[in-house]
Structures are given as structure tokens and as C-alpha cells.
């Protein structure tokens, strides 16, 4: 397996504060990579760089040979990158079905979408998806009425509907009950292999349950990389998490 996504020497500063400081990260095709690190380590910013929300001041992002840093957000999405945000971001006035329909962006142009049959054609897909994320009963309800956990699932479902090669997930289990977290881990097992995933997580139990290789970030840089056991034993990682109650409670 070759390098699929590659971040080289990425730096970003916000008003002089270096959120990322020479970050290097590569991910292979089909991998499920977990990204961890203390608060403010720059995990969200790293995802922002990949999906184009933030432009790096230096460095390059390559995805299957395409230089992403010069593209606009929608062009990056069309190149095959999907993103779930830390704060669940769905379309609250639209129904669950409509949310999933928007996410099914097979042909994203305006003119291609000036038809009615596009929506009817995807209905079977959407019902299948709703079953996967457990929202069948809620298909015709506005997303505003979903619980927090359901909103998280809806957004994950929207990424599945988008069906892109690379999926970036920012804290998908945040605010979920233990049972919901378990269900989410199952969901991820079904995505594994079909998509390349980068998952930012604080919940070490969840990370151990789903992750192959874990990358640890600290102060805008890559600190360590390896299996859960390797990372936990790493002295610098232990030092980085010092004062925040250790890696397991981060």
C-alpha cells in the first residue's frame, strides 16, 4: 500500500500563534487512523488544512497525487475528501431524508440538479442509510428535533451518503452515552476498508477499539506514531499528557 494522503511541513498561525508547526503526517489507503493529543494540540486544525477550511502558510497536502492546498473547499470535496465537524453540523430546518439527500452529491453542479427525478432516484439509498444509522423512524422529521447522539449519527450517515474516499471525523463520539459510543464503533467497523478514515478522538477506549495506528499530536507537531500499546509507553507522550490526568483520561 502506498501513501494516500500526505501532509508535509504544514505550518499555520492564528494572529502569530502557531497552531501547526511543521506537521508531517501520512496515511495509507484503506487505513483507519486515529489522531489524538491534548486540548489545543492542533488536531482540528490539521483536519481543517486537509479539507481546505484553513489554508497552510507553508507546506503541502497531497492526496492521490493532487495538491489540495491550492483548491477551494468544494473542489477538495469533489477530489474525494469528506469531513465531520467537531460541533455536529447538519441542516436543522431540513428533514433527515433531505439532509442525506444533500449529502448524496453525485453531480454537484447547479444545472445537473435542476430536476425532480434526482431526488426520487436516491430514495432507496437513503432508506438503507437511515437503517444503518438507526434513524428510519425519523426520516421525515427536521434534523433540529434529533437528540445530540442522533445528530452525530446523522452527520456520520451524511458522510457515508457522500461516499468519498477519505473521511475526516472530528470527535464523532463526543457527548455520546457509552452505549451510543459502542454503536458508533460498530458503524466504523462497517466503514473500514471501504474508505480511508482519519478520526480525532479523546476516548482512548474507543481509539483502542477501532484504531490500527495512532498518531499523537502535541503543540502543532507529530509527537509519536504506533499501536496503542507503543504510544502509551512512549515517554514523550506521557510527558505531553502530564497534568491532564494521563492519556487515558485526556
Amino acid at each position: 500500500m502506498t501513501t494516500h494522503l500526505d501532509l508535509r511541513d504544514i505550518s499555520v498561525s492564528f494572529n502569530g500563534f502557531k497552531a501547526l508547526n511543521g506537521l508531517n503526517l501520512s496515511v495509507r489507503k484503506g487505513e483507519l487512523r486515529c489522531l489524538i493529543g491534548p486540548n489545543g494540540a492542533g488536531k482540528t486544525t490539521a483536519l481543517d488544512i486537509i479539507c481546505g477550511k484553513v489554508k497552510p502558510s507553508t507546506g503541502a497536502v497531497t492526496f492521490d497525487g493532487t495538491a489540495l492546498q491550492d483548491l477551494e473547499e468544494h473542489e477538495i470535496a469533489r477530489a474525494g475528501v469528506g469531513r465531520k465537524f467537531q460541533v455536529p453540523s447538519v441542516f436543522r430546518d431540513l428533514t433527515v431524508a433531505e439532509n442525506l439527500e444533500v449529502a448524496r452529491a453525485r453531480r454537484p453542479g447547479v444545472w445537473a440538479n435542476l430536476r425532480w427525478d434526482v431526488r426520487r432516484a436516491g430514495r432507496a439509498d437513503i432508506e438503507r442509510l437511515a437503517e444503518l444509522i438507526g434513524l428510519t423512524e425519523h426520516l421525515e422529521r427536521p434534523a433540529a428535533y434529533l437528540s445530540h447522539g442522533q445528530t452525530q449519527w446523522l452527520e456520520i450517515g451524511m458522510l457515508v451518503a457522500q461516499d468519498v474516499e477519505l473521511i475526516l471525523m472530528d470527535e464523532p463520539t463526543a457527548g455520546m452515552t457509552a452505549q451510543e459510543t459502542r454503536k458508533t464503533a460498530e458503524l466504523f467497523e462497517r466503514l473500514r476498508g471501504k474508505h480511508t478514515l482519519i478520526v480525532v478522538e479523546h476516548d482512548m477506549g474507543f481509539v483502542k477499539a477501532i484504531g490500527d495506528i495512532i498518531s499523537v499530536m502535541h503543540m502543532g507537531q507529530l509527537l509519536a506514531e504506533g499501536t496503542a500499546a507503543e504510544v502509551e509507553a512512549h515517554p514523550e507522550v506521557r510527558r505531553a499528557y502530564l497534568g491532564s490526568g494521563g492519556i487515558t483520561n485526556a
Binding site: 473547499e73 470535496a77 447538519v90 436543522r92 439527500e101 444533500v102 452529491a105 454537484p108 434526482v118 431526488r119
Partner: peptide, 29 residues
Amino acid sequence: FTRTKAGLVVQAIRDHEGRVRYFGYDVAA
């Protein structure tokens, strides 16, 4: 128009403009 997919995308933009871009839609268009 509101019943087409384009009409749906327009409503999604109304709800959350920033989010729509990351599905590959050119919001400005």
C-alpha cells in the same frame, strides 16, 4: 424550483452555508 435537488441545496445553504461546501457544491453558483 424548490422541489428540485438544486432547490434543496439552496435551502441547505440557507441553513448552514459553510457545511454545504464540504459536500462538493459550489455554494456561490
